[in-house]
């Protein structure tokens, strides 16, 4: 039920982001979703890709610091209060969202949002209990 995300440490230097995407592209890795958190000195690029092990390998070869994290892909109704409803349930169950970002593609009537929780397993239980659709990794990587 979890999706594997890779994160890359990027110094705030012109051209670094381009370098990451070039390394991945040349290795035939396709990016499915991404988010960039930035501070004044560095950024953390989080990616969902089709070939996660290959991506990690080529980035490490190019001296990037990479880490894998479990995140959850949730189908969110694409209408007002769609996301709010889900967040309320998580909040009521005491699950904290570390960060989230939206997926580029839609799944029919729904949007896909990637969540990073403090407690992934608990979050999955809460969402499933509430009948909210969670997308398995394979569907996300191959979308």
């Amino acid at each position: 039920m979890k999706v594997q995300q890779i994160s890359v440490f990027i110094e705030n230097i012109p051209g670094r982001l381009a370098e990451v995407t070039k390394v991945l592209g040349n290795a035939g890795v396709n990016i499915r979703a991404l988010s960039l958190a930035d501070t004044s000195d560095f950024g953390v690029l989080r990616l969902i890709v089709d070939k996660i092990d290959r991506a990690k390998e080529v980035l490490a070869e190019h001296q990037f610091t990479v880490t894998k994290t479990d995140v959850v892909a949730v189908e969110v109704p694409d209408r007002p209060l769609g996301l709010a409803g889900i967040l309320q349930r998580l909040d009521a169950a005491g699950v904290t969202v570390e960060y989230l970002y939206a997926f580029v593609e839609r799944m029919g009537e729904n949007a896909v949002i990637i969540f990073r929780f403090d407690n992934v397993d608990e979050a999955v239980k809460v969402l499933q209990g509430a009948g909210i659709e969670i997308l398995p990794g394979e569907r996300i990587y191959n979308l």
């Binding site: 995300q5 994160s7 440490f9 958190a37 501070t39 560095f42 953390v44 989080r46 610091t65 990479v66 880490t67 994290t69 570390e98 960060y99 990073r116």
Partner: peptide
Amino acid sequence: EVNEDTFSDAVKTLQ
């Protein structure tokens, strides 16, 4: 230098 031990996907940890 950041390495695999000190790196995290959460910005807060790095800060």
